[in-house]
Simulated scan of single mutants.
Amino acid sequence: MKRIFFSNLIAFVGPYQGGVWRIRVELPDAYPYRSPSVGFVNKIYHPNVDEMSGSVCLDVINQTWSPMFDLVNVFEVFLPQLLLYPNPSDPLNGEAAALMMRDRNGYDQRVKEYCEKYAKAEDAGAAPEEKSSEEELTEDEYASSDEEVAGKVDP
């Protein structure tokens, strides 16, 4: 049985600061020996996130996953670090990667525009003052529900 979790991620520093994203995490049957599938539900402008599907390209999740990692690592370390340190040389969003490499100020402005348009607390289904939590859903129960905020970006 595949387990699906929803939680929210708030960015506290960098061009994504103040943005709130709803994150979808699918845990395979072999978790923690197989990595979770992680994606953004609401739109984010980022070189390593597919704009249409929200899928995340992150080596530590996709290729170098270890059973020693857990969802705390995903929300408190891996995703916040992805927001702080995008990797334009391994893009899922080629437009974002190209803009970041040729015009960092333009990239930061586009990120802020996306945050204002798609990453407000109401877009993620949570108020910013809420604390971390997760909700487990089966694939059949995949539906929108109120979630709470998880994850901090380390400065």
Score class of each variant (00 low, 15 high):
F6N: 02
N8Y: 05
L9G: 01
L9E: 01
I10K: 02
I10Q: 07
I10P: 03
F12R: 02
G14I: 03
G14N: 00
G18S: 06
G19A: 09
V20R: 03
V20P: 00
W21I: 06
R22F: 04
R24P: 05
V25Q: 00
E26I: 15
E26K: 11
L27P: 02
P28Y: 06
D29G: 11
A30E: 13
Y33S: 08
Y33A: 09
S37L: 11
G39A: 15
F40M: 09
F40T: 00
V41W: 03
V41T: 10
V41M: 09
N42H: 09
N42Y: 04
K43D: 04
K43N: 09
P47V: 08
V49I: 14
V49F: 07
V49A: 05
M52A: 15
V56F: 00
V56R: 05
V60R: 04
V60G: 00
I61L: 13
Q63V: 12
T64D: 10
S66A: 12
S66W: 03
S66I: 04
S66R: 10
S66T: 13
P67K: 06
P67L: 03
M68C: 13
F69H: 08
D70Q: 08
V72C: 15
V72P: 01
E76I: 03
V77I: 15
F78D: 07
F78N: 07
L82F: 01
L84S: 10
L84T: 04
P86D: 03
N87M: 08
P88Q: 08
P88N: 07
G94Y: 11
A97L: 02
A97R: 07
M100F: 06
R102N: 09
D103R: 11
R104L: 08
R104F: 07
N105A: 15
D108A: 15
D108I: 07
R110K: 15
V111E: 00
V111R: 00
E116T: 14
E116G: 14
E116D: 15
E116S: 14
K117W: 05
K117F: 06
K117L: 14
A119P: 01
D123H: 13
D123I: 06
A124R: 02
A124C: 09
G125S: 08
P128K: 12
P128W: 05
P128G: 09
E135N: 14
E135P: 03
E135D: 11
E136R: 12
E136K: 10
L137W: 07
T138M: 12
T138Q: 12
E139R: 14
E139N: 12
D140H: 11
E141V: 12
A143M: 13
A143R: 15
A143F: 03
A143N: 10
S144Q: 11
S145R: 15
